[in-house]
Design a protein around this nucleic acid. Structure first.
Ligand code: NAD
Ligand code: NAD
Lengths: 266, 266
DNA sequence: TACCGCTTGTGAACGTGTGCACAAAGTCAG
DNA sequence: CTGACTTTGTGCACACGTTCACAAGCGGTA
C-alpha cells in the first residue's frame, strides 16, 4: 500500500509539444526565455553537476582578474575534456566567441541563471551532532547563496543552544520555522533510524529538496528531489580499487615472471 | 595512443595530463590485465557503488534474522530496479538459487570479497577542523572495516590534542606515520588552498586512495584513485531542480491563461 | 518421476553520455 | 579587404549503463 515506487522522472511533460513559445510575453528582456526553459529539461544530470564545478573555477578566475577563458583553459582547470566542456556549455546556450573564448562574467551569469542561483536558497539542517555542527559552522554555504537559516534537533539539551550563531530549534517546530524562513533545502544529518521520519516532516513542511547524509534509502513523493551523500560507500568504492589494484599487481608479477616494467613483447 | 582512464566520480576527475602541453607520454603503458581479474575490472563503477549499498542493506537484514532474500526484496530495500540488482550481482558471480533467492550470508561474504573488505583499510584524516572533527568522532567507519588510525593538521595548537580518542599529529609526520600504520586511504578536509599540497604529501607517503572534501580538482599520478565529495555542488544541483520545477510551474500557469502569485512581470 | 510455479541469470534492445573531428564563425595583421 | 589563424559549437560514432523479457534451473508436490 501507499506504493510509491518508481522514481522515474515523470515524463509527463509532452516533449514534442509546442509550448506556448510564440505567445508574446510582457518580458522585454531576452527573447529566448521559453527556449531556455525547454533546454533546461534537456540538460543531463551529469552536465549539471559539472556546470557547478565550472562555476566555481570561473569565480576563482574572475577574482584573479581573468576577462576571458578558452574552453581548453577552463577544461584543464576543471579537470575535464575540453570537448565535454563545450558540449556542457552548449546545453545552456551559445555564449562564446569563436576564435576568442568565453567572457568569464557572462559565463558566470548564465550558469548561475540555469542553476537557479539568482535567488537564495534557504537551508535547514536537521540533526546537530558531529556532522550537523560542522555543516552549521561551515562558511562556504552562505557565501555561495545557500544561507543556513534553521537548525533542528530532538535533544532537549541542544534546543536553544546557539550553533554557528544560530539557536537550535526543536523538530516539532519544523513546519512553522520552515514556512517562516522559506526553507527550500533540508539537510538530514540525524542517525539513520530517524532519517525517514525527519524526511517526512520536512516534506510535510513543504521542503522540496533533501540532502541526505544518513545511510538509508529515503522514500519521498515524486515531487521531492533527494540527493544522498554516503561516505561509507565512497570508502568502499576506494577499497574496491585498492583490491583491484592489488590483484592486478599480483597477476602481473606472476605473469611477467621476472620482467618488471616495459611492454610485453611477443 | 595512451589508454585514457575515464573519470571516476560523477564530477571529480583525474586528468592524466598536467598543465603542460601534451608533449610526452611518461606513462610506461602497462600491459593489459589477464583474464582472471578481467572480471573485477569489468564491473561498472556505478555497480560497485550500488554493491556497497546492497551490502549495508544485507547487513541490516542479517541482524534482523533473515536467511535468504529474493532480488525483488533486496531491490526494494535498496531502492533500485530488481533487474538492475540482479545484473549487478551477476558481475560478481552466480550465488543465487533459482526459485529461492540469495542466501544473505553468502551474498555478504561475496560482496565483501569483491569490494576488498576482507582486510581492514587504515584511514588517515588530514585537516582536523569542523569536518575533520566530525569524521574523527564518527563511529560508523571503524565499525565497517575502515579504522581511522591517524589524524593530521598544521595548527600547532591542535597537534597533540586528542580527537576522537587519538592525538593529532603534525603533517610533517605524514610519511612516517602513514608508513607505520599502513594507511591506505587519505581523507582531505583542509581548506581548499592547502588541499593539493596535502594530497602530494599523502601520495609521496604511498597512500593510493584519496577522499577529497575540499572543493578543488586534485592532480594526482595515474596510480592514485581520487573520489571527491563536493557539498556545494550537491546543493547547486538541488537548486537547479528547484529552478526547473519553478520554471515548469510558471510555464504551466502561463499556459493556463492567468499569472498566479508573485511572478515577475514586466 | 513428472509436473508446476517461482526466481535467477543474461542476451539483446534501448537510452544516455562521452569524445572526436571538423565546418562555421569570429579576430587580427597587413 | 583579404587571408591566416584561433576557437567555438555540433554531428556522429562509440561506449557505457539501464531495462526488458524470457529460457534455464531449482524446490516443492502429487
Ligand atoms: N560524522 C560523520 O563524519 C559522518 C560520516 C558519514 C555519515 N554520517 C551520518 O550522518 C549522520 C549524523 O552523524 P553524526 O556523526 O553527526 O551523528 P551524531 O550522533 O553525532 O548526531 C546525530 C544528531 O541527531 C540528533 N537526532 C537524533 N534523532 C533525531 C531526530 N529524530 N530528529 C532530529 N534530530 C535527531 C541527535 O540528537 C544528534 O544531535 C548519521 O546518519 C551518520 O551515519 C556521519
Ligand atoms: N565543514 C563543512 O561542513 C564543509 C562542507 C563542505 C565542504 N567543506 C570543505 O571541507 C574542508 C574543511 O572544512 P572545515 O569546515 O573543516 O574547515 P576548517 O577551517 O574548520 O578546518 C580546516 C582545518 O585544516 C587545517 N589546515 C589548514 N591548512 C592545513 C594544511 N596545510 N595541512 C593540514 N591541515 C591544515 C586547519 O588547521 C584546520 O584545522 C574545506 O575545504 C571545506 O571547503 C566543509
Amino acid at each position: 500500500m501507499a506504493a510509491q515506487r518508481g522514481q522515474r522522472n515523470g515524463v509527463g511533460v509532452t516533449p514534442p509539444a509546442p509550448t506556448a513559445a510564440e505567445i508574446t510575453t510582457p518580458i522585454p528582456r531576452v527573447t529566448e526565455v521559453p527556449a531556455a526553459r525547454e533546454r533546461a529539461r534537456a540538460i543531463p544530470e551529469a552536465a549539471v553537476a559539472r556546470l557547478a564545478v565550472y562555476l566555481r573555477v570561473l569565480s576563482g578566475m574572475q577574482e584573479h582578474g581573468a576577462g576571458t577563458v578558452s574552453s581548453e583553459e577552463l577544461a584543464v582547470a576543471a579537470g575535464v575534456n575540453s570537448a565535454k566542456l563545450r558540449k556542457d556549455l552548449s546545453y545552456i546556450g551559445s555564449y562564446g566567441t569563436r576564435g576568442v573564448g568565453y567572457e568569464v562574467a557572462v559565463l558566470i551569469e548564465e550558469i548561475e541563471r540555469i542553476l537557479g542561483l539568482t535567488r537564495k536558497h534557504s537551508v535547514a539542517v536537521v540533526g546537530i551532532g558531529n556532522l550537523g555542527h560542522a555543516l552549521a559552522n561551515y562558511g562556504g554555504f552562505p557565501g555561495r547563496g545557500f544561507p543556513v537559516t534553521a537548525l533542528f534537533d530532538v535533544d532537549p539539551d541542544l534546543v536553544g543552544v546557539p550553533v554557528g550563531g544560530m539557536p537550535v530549534e526543536h523538530i516539532d517546530d519544523i513546519p512553522r520555522v520552515c514556512a517562516e524562513r522559506e526553507v527550500s533545502i533540508g539537510v538530514i544529518a540525524t542517525p539513520p533510524p530517524a532519517a525517514q521520519a525527519v524526511c517526512d516532516r520536512l516534506v510535510s513542511a513543504g521542503v522540496q529538496c533533501i540532502l541526505n547524509f544518513a545511510p538509508v534509502v529515503l522514500q519521498v513523493p515524486d515531487h521531492v528531489e533527494v540527493r544522498k551523500v554516503d561516505l561509507a560507500v565512497e570508502l568502499q568504492v576506494l577499497s574496491f580499487h585498492v583490491a583491484r589494484r592489488a590483484d592486478n599487481a599480483a597477476v602481473l608479477a606472476e605473469a611477467n615472471g621476472r620482467a618488471v616494467d616495459g611492454m610485453v613483447v611477443s
